[in-house]
Design a protein around this nucleic acid. Structure first.
Lengths: 341, 341
DNA sequence: ATTTGCAATGTTAGCGCTAACATAATGTTA
DNA sequence: TAACATTATGTTAGCGCTAACATTGCAAAT
């Protein structure tokens, strides 16, 4: 006799035995209690409790060909920007029958591809991926995934399926325009870890400066090093050393902007009078700093929330009125760019 | 005839057909290529590629009663402290055969219990949970999980299975002692979202102040609101309003400390001369600020790394020399507490 | 009383994979 | 060359669950 041992945990059959019903009744009682009489439901629940039964999700997924897993892929776990979106996704998804499966692509396309493959192996109910710069292979995999796919954080005109985010180009343009309007003359750009979204911000920024006749490529400083407050302080120091006439900077994110502020303070440069600073994303700390920091406010939590809504709608068979949702941004002017002209 | 449709994806049987072998040979070729001849392996790999076959992980998990899933539960997705540990876990785990399954307990014990149940339903290879303040039920569930369990971030003397972290009590004590030694007289505490670890830091802090004869309960200010830079600024403002003689604060984390610094700057209080500030964790920004901020440095990345090492060792059947690993902390003295006495 | 309809429960097979055993093909030794 | 390992592959059953169909019981409708 050739018996396999199993995991040792109680199974639905154990519960069925104990409650004196068939396995399918237990299955129904757990998934859709309204389909089972009060009487049996009570007995089943008791048995479940006594045995400390927990359904084997793999068996369930296999039998039903539904996994209730939503795969999420982000390029960084430590970047607050994604953390906010993630939080929204978890908040809205963990309630329902869904389970989040999170992957970290580390800004590496090959890792992203690998993760997509792994996730698809679980027959996910939906996929959420950050950005819209997937490789062709990744796009193809997702297109054939047979589930809703939402690209978050950015928008563009060629979604794999759906998109929620905002235009980084326009965000960068708004930042550039603001500095020009404020009368700054030598406006620089500080960019760490220039991912595709930062590149688009820079493009928008350039566009605004060119329109304002203030574009100077010599004032653009970027690096592949990942962004940090220290790096912001260091880079603005380098740029000021190179160009002592620099009088404003747009930083590709808020950590860099805060660092730039500290860098100025160390160098005895007054913000905003001698140096205007604007960041991107408007993290909570921007309003609290001294002086407070101007930034482009983005609603990362809303992006995650909306992505989940769109997924749920599509899974419920509704046809969304729009596949591409632009949640926009808002320039938050604060002290760091509020000088008397 | 009563056929179920399946997921539509190619199965191992499709690959076997195409390659002209049996399913088990395909299974072996994919899991342990050395067990299959070069000849067949090549044919199988070709078939896999042509069909774009991805193994159904649920079926595999069910048949083998092994999931390769490591469940991780943290109380917050936006707290940098956990993000660093998470990053280490992902870095070290995603290489191997493992897959991370992350849950967010939101600092709610009931949510943690629910997550543990859900994760155990997947027959995880291991579990990593933050902190050592699980409910009795949660502890029991984990104890009976039949897999390695690591509690991270904190240490204590009653591990569920293994622990990696450091003593928050001692960390708080070191902070308190430092402020006393620096000659500060009216030393306060600013605490947001007082989770159990923050409470232990406060206890250690109290202990140090009592030893130094500087303990004044009136100078302790805590709130259940979650921590933020703004909140740090606000709380120190409130505390200074209540007690104008306040001359130093220990903040339960670095966001609060940065906020306290900004609060002082706004109020025209000089740091460190009129106010000493010390934070906890030593996030990257602490060294970059102006003035730079003293903090208790903790190595969150190392905690995650070590947790994974312990899990792998236990899964490989090795008996770890220690079940409780104290990774310690280090006081990083910076300008915010470096006044001339 | 018979039919109809519906709600509650059961029976059976199969989701896609791999453990456990079986067999065939090859090499190795006395 | 027979006996024995060893390696490569195959056969079969079963992991724990649920889809699909089947049956039962009972109330409402005829």
């Amino acid at each position: 006799m050739r018996k396999r041992k199993g995991a040792g945990r109680p199974t639905i059959a154990d519960v069925a035995d104990k409650a004196g019903v068939s396995t399918i009744t237990v299955s129904r009682a757990l998934r859709d209690p309204s389909k089972v009489s009060d009487h049996l439901r009570r007995k089943i629940n008791n048995a479940v409790r006594k045995l400390n039964y927990v359904p084997h999700s793999h068996a369930s997924a296999l039998a039903s060909t539904r996994s209730n897993i939503v795969g999420v892929i982000v390029p960084s776990l430590t970047n607050n920007v994604f953390a906010d979106t993630l939080r929204a996704i978890y908040d809205d998804l963990e309630q329902g029958p869904f389970q989040v499966q999170l992957g970290n692509s580390r800004y590496v396309a090959a890792d992203e591809e690998r993760l997509i493959r792994t996730f698809l192996g679980q027959g996910p109910s939906a996929m959420i991926v950050a950005g819209n710069d997937q490789t062709d292979t990744a796009r193809e995999l997702l297109q054939n995934a047979g589930c809703p796919v939402v690209q978050v954080m950015d928008i563009g005109d060629d979604p794999i399926d759906m998109m929620v985010g905002f235009s980084h180009f326009e965000g960068g343009r708004a930042a550039g325009r603001h500095l020009v309007q404020k009368g700054y003359k030598r406006i620089g750009f500080l960019g760490a870890r220039m991912d595709p979204r930062s590149h688009r911000r820079l493009e928008g920024f350039k566009d605004a400066l060119q329109s304002g006749g203030r574009y100077d490529p010599d004032l653009i400083m970027t690096t592949t090093i990942s962004s940090s407050v220290s790096l912001g302080a260091e880079l603005i120091g380098q740029l000021m050393a190179r160009r002592s006439d620099l009088d404003a900077v747009f930083c590709n994110n808020d950590d860099m902007a805060l660092g730039a502020l500290f860098g100025c303070q160390k160098a005895g440069i007054s913000v905003p009078d001698q140096m205007g600073i604007i960041g991107f994303n408007d993290l909570e700390m921007m309003a609290a700093s001294h002086p407070s920091l101007t930034s482009i406010r983005t609603d990362r939590y809303a992006i995650g929330k909306r992505a989940v809504e769109m997924i749920k709608a599509e899974l419920d068979g509704e046809t969304p009125e729009q596949k591409i949702v632009d949640l926009g941004f808002e320039l938050q002017q604060r002290e760091s760019t509020s000088r008397a002209k």
